[in-house]
Design a protein around this nucleic acid. Structure first.
Length: 220
DNA sequence: CCAATGATTGCCT
DNA sequence: GGCAATCATTGGC
C-alpha cells in the first residue's frame, strides 16, 4: 500500500498494530483461537480505502468432526479446499445467495479448522463503511452480523484464499486485552441442523459490547 | 442435469 | 414476530 497518501491519523493507527503471525493461526485449538481473536483488529485497504474494525464476536468450526462445519466428515470440494490450507488464510463464501461470510482458516495443512467473524466494532474508515453498506448513520448494525462485517470491510467471495498477513488485508493486535470474565460463550447461531454439535459452546463475544449479533445484542 | 438449501439480513405487519 | 430476497454449492439422479 502507498502509505504516503494516508492521513496522519491513519498512518499512526497502522504503526500501532502488530500483525498476527503464522504461529498464531496454525495452532491446533480452534476454540482457543476463536476466543483470542476477540479484541483483535481486522484491516482492509481495498480500493485505496483504509477500513478497520475490532472483533467482538466469533465462532469456532472444529473441522471434520463438527457437524456444523462445511468440512464435516472430511468434505473437500472446490469451495472448502481453502479450509485445508495452513492457518492464516481467508475463507469467504456466499450464504443465502447474497451474504459474504468471512472466516479465518486455522490449524495446519489438511486440518480444516476455521473461525467465523460474526461481529466487530468500527475503528477506522467509518465513512467508507457507510458508503459500502448504504447506511446513513453509524450504529451497531454497521458491523454486527457476519454479512455486515464483510460488507463494511469490502470483503467478497473473490477474497477467499487471501493471506491474512498481506499489506491490504490482515489481522493485528494493538495491545488491547479482554479479561476472561468478560468473554461470554454460547452455542452457535443458525446451525440447528448440526444435531448435538449445535449445542457446543463455540460462540464467543465480548460482554456488554453493543456490537454483538442475535438476541444477545444490546439495543441502543 | 437439476432441485434443494443455507454459518443471514432487512423490511413489513 | 414473520418472511422474502437471491444464487453458488451441493448432492442426488
Amino acid at each position: 500500500m502507498n502509505t504516503a497518501q494516508l492521513k496522519t491519523d491513519e498512518q499512526k493507527f497502522l504503526a500501532s498494530l502488530k500483525k498476527l503471525d503464522t504461529d498464531f493461526y496454525s495452532r491446533k485449538d480452534v476454540v482457543k483461537i476463536a476466543k483470542e481473536l476477540l479484541g483483535k483488529i481486522i484491516v482492509t485497504y481495498f480500493d485505496e480505502q483504509l477500513t478497520a474494525v475490532r472483533i467482538t464476536e466469533t465462532e469456532a468450526y472444529n473441522g471434520v468432526v463438527d457437524k456444523a462445519s462445511h468440512a464435516y466428515n472430511n468434505r473437500r470440494t472446490k469451495r472448502t479446499e481453502i479450509m485445508y490450507a495452513n492457518g492464516g488464510k481467508a475463507y469467504v463464501y456466499l450464504c443465502y445467495g447474497l451474504h459474504h461470510l468471512f472466516n479465518v482458516v486455522t490449524n495446519t495443512e489438511d486440518v480444516p479448522h476455521a473461525v467465523l467473524i460474526r461481529a466487530a466494532e468500527p475503528v477506522i474508515g467509518i465513512n467508507e463503511m457507510l458508503l459500502r453498506t448504504h447506511k446513513k448513520k453509524p450504529d451497531y448494525t454497521l458491523t454486527t452480523g457476519p454479512g455486515n462485517v464483510s460488507k463494511a470491510l469490502g470483503i467478497y467471495t473473490h477474497h477467499t484464499g487471501n493471506d491474512l498477513k498481506s499489506a491490504i488485508f490482515f489481522i493485528a493486535e494493538d495491545g488491547y486485552k479482554i479479561a476472561n470474565k468478560n468473554i461470554i460463550a454460547t452455542k452457535r447461531v443458525g446451525v440447528d441442523y448440526a444435531a448435538e454439535d449445535a449445542l457446543l459452546p463455540y460462540r464467543f463475544f465480548i460482554k456488554d459490547s453493543k456490537y454483538v449479533s442475535g438476541k444477545n445484542q444490546v439495543k441502543l
